[in-house]
Simulated scan of single mutants.
Amino acid sequence: MHALIVVGHHDPLSLTHALAGQLAEGLASAGHTSEVADLASEGFDPRFSLADHAVHRRRAAPPADVLREQARIERADALVLVYPIYWWSLPALLKGWVERVFSNGWAFDYQEGRTVKKLHGMKVHLVGIAGADAGTFVRHGYGEAMRVQIEHGIFDYCGAEVLSSTLLEDSEGPAAALLLPTARQLGEQLFSDAPLRGIQRPG
Rank of each mutant, 00 (worst) to 15 (best):
S49E: 00
A37Y: 07
W88A: 13
T115P: 00
G187W: 03
L79I: 14
P12T: 10
L126E: 04
L168V: 11
F44V: 04
I150S: 05
Y83G: 01
Y83P: 01
Q189N: 11
A132L: 11
I85M: 15
S34N: 01
A51Y: 03
A177W: 08
L50Y: 12
H125V: 15
Q22R: 15
M1L: 08
A177L: 11
A28Y: 03
D156F: 15
L13H: 13
S103I: 09
V127M: 11
D52S: 04
L50E: 05
V55E: 06
Q185V: 03
R68M: 13
Y86P: 01
L23P: 02
R139S: 13
T182G: 01
L4E: 05
A194H: 14
L186F: 05
G105I: 05
P84W: 00
R75L: 14
G8C: 10
R147A: 07
V148W: 13
L186N: 00
G153I: 12
Y83H: 13
V98L: 10
V116E: 14
D77Y: 12
S29I: 10
A132R: 14
V80A: 07
A18L: 03
V138W: 12
H120S: 08
V148L: 13
L186I: 07
D52I: 00
G153H: 05
R114S: 10
A60P: 02
F137E: 07
H17D: 02
A160R: 03
G128L: 06
A145S: 09
F44G: 01
F108H: 07
P91W: 08
A92Q: 10
E74M: 09
I154D: 00
W87D: 10
P12R: 07
V36P: 02
E151N: 15
Q149S: 09
D52H: 02
L179R: 11
M1C: 02
A51H: 04
R114K: 12
S29A: 14
A145Y: 08
G31C: 00
T166Q: 03
Q200F: 11
V148F: 04
F155H: 05
G203T: 09
H53W: 06
F48Y: 05
Q111V: 14
L90H: 04
V148T: 12
R47S: 04
D109G: 01
A130M: 10
S164I: 03
A177S: 14
H10E: 07
K118S: 03
G141V: 09
R100N: 08
Q70F: 04
L23I: 14
F137V: 00
F155D: 01
A107N: 02
L50C: 01
R139K: 15
Y142Q: 01
Q149I: 08
P62V: 07
F155I: 04
G26I: 09
V82T: 10
S34H: 02
A160S: 06
L50Q: 11
R72F: 10
R100I: 07
A37R: 10
L23A: 03
Y86V: 11
H10L: 07
A64G: 04
A130R: 09
L94W: 05
V7M: 05
S165Y: 04
S41T: 09
E161N: 13
D170K: 13
D156I: 14
Q149M: 12
A71V: 08
A71P: 06
G121R: 06
L19G: 04
Y157R: 02
F102Q: 12
K117S: 11
H9Q: 13
V66I: 14
A130T: 05
A134H: 02
D65Y: 07
Y142R: 06
E25N: 12
P91F: 06
C158E: 10
P63G: 05
L163W: 08
